[in-house]
Amino acid sequence: MIYLYILVMALVTYLIRMIPLTVFRQKITNPWICSFLYYVPYACLTAMTVPTVFYATESLPGALAGVAAALILACCRRNLVTVAAGACLTVYIVEQFMTLFGNIF
């Protein structure tokens, strides 16, 4: 079943890339469509991140700290890998801290 899903995904994605390269070769000039397509990556990445990211880790505080770290690093224009690594490291530290001191609080 998963293979069917993978095949369908691959086919749709390939056709989207292939048809404009072979069949329609003219430029899209409609400003609304151009603008729509320009915003799509930002809208979809955000929709996939919020609010699921807060439930991605083992604890909510860990996720919150990780997201905060990612936001700060991204604002400082760090590259993709640094932002991701910083977020992961923050989650790890916060969650280790919570396990260590969990019994005290």
Partner: peptide, 21 residues
């Protein structure tokens, strides 16, 4: 699991790194 939990944030971190700047 602790490292797995931390790594779960990696892809979201990259999404944030694309959108925020």
């Amino acid at each position: 699991p602790a490292i797995g939990s931390a790594l779960s944030l990696a892809l979201y971190g990259m999404f944030i790194a694309v959108v925020v700047p």
